[in-house]
Nucleic acid binder design. Structure first.
Lengths: 205, 205
DNA sequence: GGCTGTTTGTGTAAGTTTGTACAAAAAATC
DNA sequence: GATTTTTTGTACAAACTTACACAAACAGCC
């Protein structure tokens, strides 16, 4: 195990490996090879081997990798061998869709609370959740020690909500708002904007 | 203009530049510098200059970049100086949210049709759209010459739907299903899976 | 008009990432 | 049990990406 400093680009591929491996596990497959995994996800076998070997010698020559074992290791490395509570901020269509999404379960996450700054929405039920006011957000996030949030507000509110999240101790933000946000260096942000993703492909059409 | 072969990693940053520039333009700002833009989006000024200079000399020493001009150039480079028709496949919560999203307008895209393979959903109206059966999908996509699609089905249906999209001539797929899909080399895929994005951040918490 | 400050575009160096190839280990086959 | 096949982990080379630094161009000001 060479825990020195793993490049972020490798960390970014591990969830993709994990997703494919869990899919194989669900089908009852017990072992796989870097070759087979690579064909599933479109990454070269050598790269997969090199990425995984950063964390230890998890495979066996001639056989490949034990799927249950490798899944366990990857979950531990990514720290999703536990459940992280997540808050959703912004209860528009996207916030609703995510609040009702059942794909977080078993992959390390649990939506615990949802917020909106519109007084007309506060108190309304969305599935199992009652929408809370963003006025009480910092308090509730601190109380529950929530470290991760999903931002699904319009662009106009995103920076202000991000600031409040940071103040409340949130260290990871998944930003669905179509705008870049500024946060301190110790806060991580991932961006999901369907338009930028589409624009990245039109260049090649 | 050195159109030889622009690295994909640069193409991927251009939509982020464009998004920030259009935001400045909407505020009425007429010029900006690589420095200012870099601070907005968290990318070094040198990198922004080098990226942009791949396509021509769009800036002016001492002044910076004309925002309207640079926006025009980036839109042309990314081919979003026109409107691309897009189909959405899978009318669950996420499909609904995207069908109702008004953020595509003015950024180069227009949702033209939506599909679902559930007979109980076919014919129902979602906003302005009538849900069509996936049985008629290939036919309708070809008829309208649609080249881009958003895939919002469960993982179990994603590969089959992707195959149908490819057969119908679609060349770019934005995949919200939590699974890697296999497509021919000339078809582009971008992935949006909130869980893999979250898992990429938990490593650092 | 000359001086000062700003900002671009780019050459070069440094750093990072990927690809290639192969020894070593394990399993399968005969 | 010897040979062949499969597959890992990694050394080394190649390719790619980013950072640094600065000349040249332009604007603003006195």
């Amino acid at each position: 195990m060479n825990a020195d400093k793993i490049p972020d680009i490798i960390i970014g591929r591990l969830p993709v490996y994990l997703r494919a491996l869990q899919r194989l596990a669900d089908k009852g497959v017990l072992t796989t090879s870097s070759q087979e995994l690579g064909e599933m996800i479109g990454i070269s076998a050598a790269q997969i081997r090199k990425d995984i070997s950063q964390f230890g010698e998890f495979g066996k020559q001639g056989t490949g990798y034990s799927i249950p074992f490798l899944v366990d290791r990857l979950r531990a490395i990514l720290k999703v061998d536990r459940v992280w509570d997540v808050a959703i901020v912004g209860m528009g269509d996207m916030g609703h869709a995510l609040a009702r999404y059942n794909g977080f379960t078993n992959r390390g996450f649990h939506v615990l609370m949802v917020f909106d700054n519109d007084p007309a929405k506060v108190g309304i039920k969305v599935g199992e959740f009652e929408i809370f006011s963003t006025a009480v957000m910092a308090e509730k996030l601190k109380q529950q020690k929530i470290k991760m949030a999903v931002l699904t507000t319009p662009a106009s509110a995103a920076q202000e909500m991000a600031d409040q999240l940071v103040k409340a101790g949130v260290k990871a933000i998944l930003n669905y708002a179509p705008i870049s946000i500024n946060v301190p260096d110790d806060v991580h942000v991932q961006y999901i904007d369907p338009v930028t993703h589409l624009q990245r492909m039109t260049y090649y059409l």
